[in-house]
Design a protein around this nucleic acid. Structure first.
Length: 471
DNA sequence: CCTGGAGTTGTCCTA
DNA sequence: TTAGGACAACTCCAG
């Protein structure tokens, strides 16, 4: 009996504080062993490049916190757990729930199998409200954000308060892979440079949160729209991997009620509410990543144009604000929310390319790539979602640039070839007179591209395409 | 069942 | 210069 222990399975809850499963085990058992399994079995969307890199460094950090006691495996969790049970005296296994459709299926079966051998418990470690708890009076899921959040969430019991406790980890002698053994960084490509923009691990999530609460929240409702301001939280990658819990963010923001105007706190909380909404949609509509939620869009005449797609991905569309956004993504593995809308609208409504292309590119490049949020947001941008934007909402990249980057600082930061162009032409470089262009030594079509589509024409074309969906 | 109000993030034109 | 209405029609939601 001396070697008996319980097992916590780390998944997207890579933190020690406010961790429901760990907290449960620590109150019940003296000895806890933690395991991480790199599992892509039956997964319909394997981790993107950015995600794998984030995961690599997250595991290094976590293993270090656990005094190198994190068990690391690769493969099918069922076989791995059954083998562990066979070789050791394991009393109980627990984990925090995930909600991706393939995992929900897998975990259901796994639980059944493991329960033949050990006790198994699962917890909510990543959502403020469970998706099956937020339903309309008729027991069907909400499709519109506002009633979902206002009525479905806010009138329910408030989210669980964060918990903290101390526990020590059992110094086991079980053999497993090392983090590098997972070969998450096998390619040695783009990601390894981009990751330098971030500090990864639980304590850095907390640092990021505190910095945001101090510097960003105060003017959140207004400042969050301006990509050059520091008002957005930039906490999404940490939140995705569970390096911080939404509960902690929710209540830490609420604590500032004396110092910050209520509207800023409420809007920040509602952004967490959007995340809940996306998970709710994913849970109830498991095809959200592949199928248009509005099936009438199945017959929408999307175009096919690899050149356009490449120009968009590389930030070479000829529209400065679009290119700045796409290059921010490429350079930092992150994109400001405002830019996600502008670049998304451009791909779908000006280039008329299928939202799947955008969804895939973001999935591969974003450190915060999240199955629910990414899919649902792309459907929102495309207007194919349940909570569809009106068909006529087509962002104008010139207007949006002037409105949300009025000094052009954001554009110049990521599109430095335009740094000497007179401000008057910063948003429309193709209108810049040739004398000025030669004066500043900028060759349009060489140093910076001409627009790949005409805004007015492409807008009209999109409106026409949308009109076939009528009736 | 019926009814009425509303739907994160916009743009363009007109008076 | 600027503020306000038009821009499809539909579906969702709550009473």
């Amino acid at each position: 009996m001396t070697n008996e222990f319980s097992l916590h399975w780390f998944r997207q809850d890579l933190r020690l504080s406010d961790n429901s499963s760990l907290n449960y085990l620590s109150q019940k058992h003296k000895r806890i062993v933690c395991v991480f399994i790199y599992d892509q079995v039956n997964c319909n969307r394997k981790l993107g490049s950015a995600s794998k890199t984030w995961l690599h460094y997250s595991l290094l950090y976590l293993n270090n916190k656990l005094n190198n006691n994190l068990l690391i495996f690769k493969g099918d969790p069922e076989f791995i757990f059954l083998d562990l049970i066979k070789q050791n005296k394991i009393t109980e296994i627990s984990w925090n729930r995930c909600y991706e459709p393939w995992r929900v299926e897998r975990d259901k079966l796994l639980k059944k199998t493991l329960r033949k051998h050990v006790e198994v418990k699962t917890f909510n470690g990543s959502l403020l409200w469970e998706p099956w708890e937020v339903l309309k009076a008729d027991s069907t899921p909400y499709k519109i954000f506002t009633p979902f959040y206002q009525k479905g969430c806010l009138t329910k019991k408030p989210p669980r308060k964060p918990i903290s406790n101390n526990f020590s980890f059992f110094d086991h002698k079980i053999k497993s892979l090392s983090v590098t053994g997972l070969k998450l960084l096998d390619k040695l490509g783009w990601e390894n440079k981009v990751i330098n923009h971030w500090e990864i691990g639980e304590s850095f999530a907390e640092k990021q949160m505190n910095n945001f609460l101090k510097e960003g929240l105060g003017d959140y409702s207004h400042g969050r729209n301006f990509p050059n301001k520091l008002n957005v939280s930039r906490i999404s990658p940490y939140l995705h991997w569970g390096q911080i819990s939404p509960n902690t963010l929710w209540y830490e923001a609420e604590k500032l009620q004396q110092d910050v105007e209520t509207i800023n706190i409420d809007i920040f909380k509602s952004e967490l509410g959007w995340r809940e909404f996306f998970y709710n949609l994913m849970f109830h509509f498991p095809n959200i990543q592949s199928k248009n939620l509005q099936i009438k869009f199945d017959k929408f005449p999307w175009e096919s144009n690899d050149e356009f797609l490449k120009s968009w991905q590389k930030g070479l569309t000829g529209y400065p604000i679009i290119d700045a956004g796409m290059r921010e993504l490429w350079k930092t593995g992150y994109m400001h929310n405002r830019l996600r809308m502008i670049t998304g609208s451009f791909l779908v409504k000006n280039l008329l390319l299928h939202w799947h292309h955008g969804e895939k590119w973001f999935w591969d490049c974003l450190f915060d790539a999240d199955y629910a949020s990414n899919s649902a947001s792309w459907q929102w941008v495309a207007g194919t979602g349940t909570d569809a934007a009106p068909y006529f909402r087509i962002f104008n990249p010139i207007t949006q640039g002037k409105k949300f980057d009025p000094e052009g600082e954001y554009i110049k930061k990521y599109v430095p070839e335009l740094k000497n162009i007179p401000h008057k032409y910063l948003y429309t470089p193709w209108e810049c007179p040739s004398e000025i262009l030669s004066e500043i030594n900028l060759k349009l079509g060489v140093d910076y591209p001409f627009p790949i589509v005409d805004i007015k024409l492409s807008r009209a074309k999109a409106l026409k395409a949308f009109s076939i969906l009528k009736k």
